[in-house]
Computed example of a mutant assay.
Amino acid sequence: MGRLSGTETALALVVAFIEKDTWTQADLARRLDVGVAALRKRLHELIEAGVPLEREEDSPHVYWSVPKNWIPSGVRLDPSDVAELLRLLARLPSSALRNRIATRVLQGTAHARPRTTEPPPAVLVPALDPHEERWLSTVEDTTRASEVLSLNYLSTSGGGMQLRQVSPHRVLVGPPARFLATCHRDGELKWFRVDRVLRADSAGKTDYRARSTDELDDAVRFSVNGFRSGGALTRVAFHVRDPEARWVQGNLPQPLASDPVRGGIRVHGETAAVIQVARFVVGLGGAAVPETPELSAVVRDLAEAALASLESTAQKTSREDRALVDATTSGEAE
């Protein structure tokens, strides 16, 4: 009895309640090897210090407990939960933040010794671009808080860096990471890529432009690879022959779906990004045949533009080759 100092007893009590939520007074006294009177004194000291201890009598026992999942400045996880948490962390894109959190989890877990935080070779994950990682947290925080986001944004369509204010609504982690936001310039819903953000700051809630959940869900659902034109939904459909159909079926961009047909599959859906679907179809070459008129027209335009570019390049190359031959022949004649 009385082998522990007062401080040591208090620390041992905290450890005991981290391991288990509820103890009988007798079991707790045996665990700490102290007398019941000394134990009660330390328990009341913990209560005065702010530990949420509760006492309950059920003759002949006295029970002491803390709220479920209580732990000072942390969260208690079972060993199986820690293993699953590490598994989920390993599936995230590799980044400094992910590796730091994984290291903290490993070092704070008694049953696991510190080791490399990189996922095993069998689990391959893309690395998050450092530039993307720098601004992703700001985008996420302002989206959750419904705050306006002030950006320096590198626009591919607007010719270089632009100052933008947007109201972010949804974040698609990717990669590449994108966020859906209302652009304050024209009031349109648009996708923005995080790796094109040069600076990002919260501009507060005052001018935030909210959207309905249905509108946002539709914008996400009918986008293709993070692209939408902002126009009306268009029905698209195309056929893909075997054997290419088997690859296409497993790599369809959302929100397209497929049905088996004789000799291949029929792909169909609605989208506000017909040009993205058309690019997908053109990439399949002769294995895909567009069915709907809107898709057919865009596919034809893309294919003709590609052929025109190819012919122009071929003609230029031919002229350069002829000039080289002429120069060589002239030099030999001299």
Rank of each mutant, 00 (worst) to 15 (best):
G2Y: 08
S5E: 13
T9I: 09
A10S: 11
V14W: 03
E19V: 03
E19I: 02
E19A: 13
T22W: 00
T22D: 00
T22M: 03
T24Q: 12
T24A: 11
T24I: 05
A26P: 02
D27C: 12
A29V: 05
A29L: 10
A37R: 15
A38R: 10
R40M: 12
K41S: 10
H44D: 14
I47E: 06
I47D: 03
P52N: 07
L53Q: 04
L53V: 03
E57D: 11
E57T: 13
S59K: 10
P60R: 10
H61N: 11
W64Y: 06
G74Q: 02
R76C: 08
V82H: 01
A83H: 10
L86F: 01
L88V: 14
L89A: 11
L89Y: 07
A90S: 15
A90D: 15
R91V: 03
R91D: 07
P93G: 05
P93H: 07
S95G: 04
L97P: 00
L97W: 15
R98M: 04
R98Y: 03
N99T: 07
R100Q: 06
R100H: 02
A102V: 03
V105Q: 04
L106M: 15
L106R: 08
A112F: 12
R113P: 00
R113H: 11
P114L: 07
R115T: 13
T117F: 10
E118F: 09
P119A: 15
P121L: 09
V123R: 06
L124C: 00
V125Q: 08
V125C: 07
L128S: 00
D129C: 09
